[in-house]
Amino acid sequence: MRALRLILTGWRFHVKSLTLSAFFLLTSAIQPILFATMAYFMFRAGSTEQSLLYVALGSGLMGIWSSTLFGSGGAISWQRWQGTLEVSIAAPAPFVLVLIPITLATATIGLYSLTATLLWGKLFFGVPFDLEHPLLFLLSIPATIVGLGMLGLVLAASFVLYRNANAMSNLLEFPVWLVTGLLVPLSLFPGWVEPISWVLAPTWGVRAIRDAALGGGDPVGAILMSLGLAVVYLGIGTVLIGYFERLARERATLSLT
């Protein structure tokens, strides 16, 4: 109960903090809009028939992934830089409960990307916004955010151990867009790609959101997969964070000085 309350308070706090950063907001809206525009043109000029809403939702999820990747991947370095890492670790709350709200918030901020690409698509490309299953669509969004947020927890912990979080973030933006089927169906890839996609939250997030919006598929199953993966990520993330904390206390890497 306490933990839940802490996560909720922390999440609100960090969403507010990120929202007040003009820089973060501009980046999380403009980059996805540019990529969405590219995707609209490519799909429109191509010969394959595909609904533009498919493209808009896929581009929006690309934005959610970018925001999680850069936000969560750099979360610990950012806290260290701000001087809040030490204060947070010195608090009695388990550090993983401090970090979860942060990574969830970075995924949540990705909703600005989704909203931006949908609005942009509607205004300039006439993308219709008709939902097959409005209720499932509403459920699929928080499920996707939770899945990506928990994946962010794993990223936060593993990137800080690699020590060059920015390089890892740079590396992982395109491949995850690619192998989670955000714009291109997985059937185009060699067979070994599919198992990789199963363990990545965006795969299920985009399926849940898209199937709920466009119909077909199994949105409920995808929502459950997203939430199930979130639990697995939480387990892995907790172990990694514990390891990081121990290591940091031994090696004195909590502060900048």
Partner: peptide, 29 residues
């Protein structure tokens, strides 16, 4: 530094090319 150069200057471009080429294949563009 290799820990930066390889992921950023070689890794990211590799996946950028694959990303767009696959959209090209899928859309038949």
């Amino acid at each position: 530094h290799p820990s930066y150069y390889i992921p950023t200057m070689l890794g990211a471009p590799l996946f950028q090319i694959l990303f767009f080429a696959y959209i090209g294949r899928y859309t038949g563009l």
